[in-house]
Design a protein around this nucleic acid. Structure first.
Lengths: 145, 145
DNA sequence: CGGAATCCTATCGGATACTG
DNA sequence: CAGTATCCGATAGGATTCCG
């Protein structure tokens, strides 16, 4: 069984139905005690995929369909060629997109998401949703909570 | 109205029900053309909240309830005091957690999530879920897709 | 115990210039 | 058009030391 970035075991196997039970949802398997960010851990793998400035924006553009390098620059006018190339290379290395060289001249490329890349869509949606929720809730401390 | 990190307008107002329509879900409001990461943009605010090494793990621990500084170090044995303090300070500044000084000696603190902090729970779950999905799908290019 | 201060290194992000 | 190469300032992350 693969090791995950777990930190501690379940606090005594709370009965099911308890409002504050273990958290199977959040930490499916709580054995192990690695306690350090592990790129192979699912909890770290996804953040790593969307990490870095511009990354979510690039992904979002590609969610709408394939784009050329130039098209992406057009849609993200302020990103530098270097950073865009960096992002695309990283995303490609992670198997989230593929690059097609379209034959002819001048050279044309086309970046498109793989199924794995498209699998990030719910995460982007959730990021957006959470972001909006946060803007409303931020600063709301819990004095008597 | 607040500006968001948008990049381009809708491609011609596709009719509702279309499978490849605009993407109201992904990019609710597509006006504007800022095209640069803006901390005030919801799409950037949430990533920023969970950005940085250890952050998701710290949040995950606090999802289980309040913890002291030392307790967190115990559960995350390899995090340095500086980084933990950094993360906690940042999360506090963002209104995601509050620090309680418990009177007495030695000094004891207690960090607990605010409602805003707890609002991150679905995002963490989604991060985990996506991470698992990615591990299975990664490398799966789409030749005829 | 719960940090802050300091230092140091690696990586990031951006600007600029150049190439096939 | 689609990048690469190079340089550089800003940050991030970690180790160590010290303090209330």
């Amino acid at each position: 069984m693969a090791h995950r970035t777990e930190t501690h075991g379940p606090p005594g196997a709370a009965p099911p139905g308890e409002p504050r039970a273990w958290d199977a949802e959040l930490v499916p398997d709580a054995r192990g005690r690695t306690g350090r960010p592990n790129p192979h851990c699912p909890v770290e793998f996804a953040p790593a995929a969307v990490a870095g400035r511009w990354t979510t924006l690039v992904l979002r553009e590609l969610m709408h369909g394939p784009h050329s390098f130039g098209a992406l620059r057009g849609r993200l006018p302020e990103i530098s060629a270097k950073v865009l190339a960096d992002r695309l290379r990283t995303l490609e290395e992670r198997g989230l997109l593929v690059r097609d060289w379209l034959p002819g001249f001048p050279v044309r490329t086309r970046y498109r998401l793989t199924p794995a890349g498209r699998a990030l869509r719910p995460l982007l949606v959730e990021l957006y949703r959470t972001g909006r929720a946060l803007r409303c809730a931020a600063g709301t401390a819990a004095p008597g909570d």
